[in-house]
């Protein structure tokens, strides 16, 4: 039970911790403060609780595919706000001043939504133990270990990024956020496949022999890149398209921004 608790909690916490540490490391650049993050985390936890409480009802929606719909919508929204955030992060600092409020929302939105999704899963898992007759203690210890590992990784990444010069840090954060966003987008596609909204095709490849998805590295890559050992073709396509959209967004924004600057 300890191991299960660790894996479940760690998987969810790690995803949020990575996202938060990446966003927080450029937070000062945008003028975001600690209490903004605290507010985002708090509302995320509240939404997670509400989501978990209403999950039985939600699950029955749309011919028992409500869960997939809601989750994929959450994930697509995360992708969209992260993509917009990355694109706006490429503006010059002068223009960014006018966009601070928007960027703040784009930055906190993914945290709130990711926490809603992952938090509800943790809540349901732990809650089921307090209602069962199984020993709770290992689950509590496991949850502590899992969340501490996740938070520690997040804190170390945050401080590693903070110690980088701003220019380099921005580049790293943009790249990392882009792959994370695309990973989340491909998860959304996987959910739509599960709900039969999209037609399933055989997996494009099977790399589980080289890197199993349930191994520690596989889990870490899943959180960062959205790694899957047996991805569906649509997942790969959406991943690539998602990346291309962000890149072209950045290029267009830069071109447009520099043109505007010349006009002025």
């Amino acid at each position: 039970m300890l191991l299960t608790a660790i894996i479940i909690v760690l998987r969810e916490v790690l995803e949020i911790a990575l996202l938060t540490s990446l966003l927080a490391s450029v937070g000062k650049y945008i003028g975001i403060r600690f209490h903004h993050f605290a507010l985002a985390l708090l509302s995320g936890i509240t939404f997670a609780y509400l989501y978990a409480k209403n999950l039985p009802t939600i699950s029955e929606l749309f011919d028992y595919t409500g869960q997939e719909w809601i989750n994929s919508i959450l994930q697509i929204t995360i992708y969209v706000s992260l993509a917009c955030f990355i694109i706006l992060l490429c503006s010059n600092p002068h223009r960014m001043n006018n966009l601070k409020r928007l960027m703040m929302c784009l930055m906190l939105m993914p945290i709130v939504l990711a926490l809603t999704r992952e938090g509800s899963e943790i809540y349901i898992y732990i809650d089921s133990f307090f209602h069962g007759n199984r020993p709770v203690f290992p689950v509590v210890v496991g949850s502590i270990i899992g969340s501490c590992i996740g938070l520690s990784i997040g804190a170390l990444i945050y401080y590693a990024l903070i110690s980088c010069p701003l220019e380099k840090r921005l580049t790293i954060v943009k790249c990392a956020l882009a792959v994370t966003a695309c990973g989340i987008l491909s998860q959304a596609v996987s959910l739509l496949l599960q709900a039969d909204v999209l037609h399933s095709y055989p997996a494009l490849w099977n790399s589980s022999e080289y890197l199993a998805e349930d191994s520690a590295i596989g889990q870490l890559l899943y959180a960062i890149l959205g790694y899957e050992a047996t991805p569906a073709p649509q997942q790969v396509i959406v991943y690539v398209v998602g990346l291309l959209l962000i890149i072209s967004g950045v290029v267009i924004h830069k071109y447009y921004g520099s043109k505007r600057a010349i006009d002025v």
Binding site: I145, C148, I149, L151, S152, I153, A155, L156, Y159
Partner: peptide, 11 residues
């Protein structure tokens, strides 16, 4: 940083 490193390695 120290606490995070120790936690990570220990756990």
């Amino acid at each position: 940083v120290l606490l995070a490193s120790i936690t990570l390695l220990n756990f």
